[in-house]
Design a protein around this nucleic acid. Structure first.
Lengths: 195, 195
DNA sequence: CCCCTAGTTAGATCAATGTCTAATTAGATG
DNA sequence: CATCTAATTAGACATTGATCTAACTAGGGG
């Protein structure tokens, strides 16, 4: 399911008049004048809301002689209502491991590789540990700020002397990117599993 | 559940940024800066959205040293998501009988009690039939229009001579109400099962 | 005690939206 | 064809709301 559709659905029923229309139509189809009468609104206003409800397929209509009857589509209502809770609880598959455990694990690794005053002893060989160390360093960089190579080198040197290697690793790990010798953090969603 | 709360809930998640926040928080708590970084928005904007999410109890927070962690409240999400489909499908208990059948049944009763030229022969004794007849008469009244007693009497007389009885029945059946001898239709949702 | 960082509040701006009245379209009917 | 009713469209108006910048508040830590 596309995010935009889900948003549109909730935006549509995030209105008191439209929810009332839905709950009226739950008792069976009604025509526009009836809705206007019940809700004490004018016909154009009903038209406006019905259009939005039809846009997200919550309502369909059928013409009978001169009047149009509107029908609630309950399937759509249930489908979209269930979507967000499902999306949220499904995060439990690979991603959710258990936050607390991860934090502890990371802390252990960081304690191993950093001195008490925060300097990196050696660059880890294992990919996973190396990434954790790089994340840690990158977390002290500012979002959206552009760094000259000189600035970046100096920053890295507060952690470790081999700034060249680490600078390269930051690029390879898509934690940062470089453009015309200007460095900048990538959006954190690209790399920040744990912040 | 109050209607207003349900509307507020859907209005709150009817926004792409807030849905993204929820799905990020589904992976575990995050602090504001992290959210700002991931979503590429400024801190005040995050604050704005978090406030709305807290307003409907979708998010809570906890302070840790200097930073505030935001937590998703999944229970609330599931509770409110289920509310509308439940409300809609529950209408099926007494109310939903089957529209087509009801219409036919009503028509039969009306044919019995009204002459070909639309006058009421006698006032039904059975409560249910009486109500159907009253609904029929009331459907020719205008929504929101105020009637003097004289006007109302004259209107009723187009159906039946005993306007006093019928006028009283309209009040008793909460189809109309009277205030300072001015009569007006009640909102149709109070009485219009079939329009 | 001063500063640094994280959040919030205030205020501005611009887009979206709910509602209405007036005008228009679409069928049905005499 | 003329007319009636139901619905939609157009356009106006007022409100809400998402986002930003700037200023302010609140905890820590040197």
């Amino acid at each position: 399911m596309q995010l935009e559709k889900l948003v549109a659905f909730h935006k549509t029923i995030g209105d008191v008049t439209r929810i009332r229309i839905l709950s009226i139509l739950a008792n069976g189809p009604k025509h526009g004048q009836a809705l206007a009468g019940i809700l004490k609104l004018t016909a154009p206003t009903i038209s406006h809301h019905i259009t939005k409800l039809k846009d997200v397929n919550l309502v369909t209509d059928r013409r009978e002689k001169n009047t149009v009857y509107y029908f609630l589509n309950e399937d759509v209502l249930e489908h979209y209502s269930a979507a967000l809770p499902k999306m949220v609880s499904n995060k439990g598959d690979t991603n959710k491991v258990d936050n607390q455990k991860l934090i502890v694990e990371h802390k252990k690794i960081l304690d191993n590789f950093f001195t008490a005053d925060g300097r990196l002893k050696t660059i880890p060989a294992q990919r996973k540990k190396k990434m954790i160390v790089l994340y840690h360093i990158a977390n002290s960089l500012e979002n959206g700020r552009k760094y000259s190579e000189k600035e970046l080198n100096e920053f890295i040197q507060t952690f470790h002397d081999d700034y060249a290697t680490i600078r390269r690793e930051l690029i390879i790990g898509s934690i940062m990117y470089r453009e015309n010798n200007i460095y900048e953090l990538n959006p954190r969603e690209m790399w920040a599993d744990i912040v």
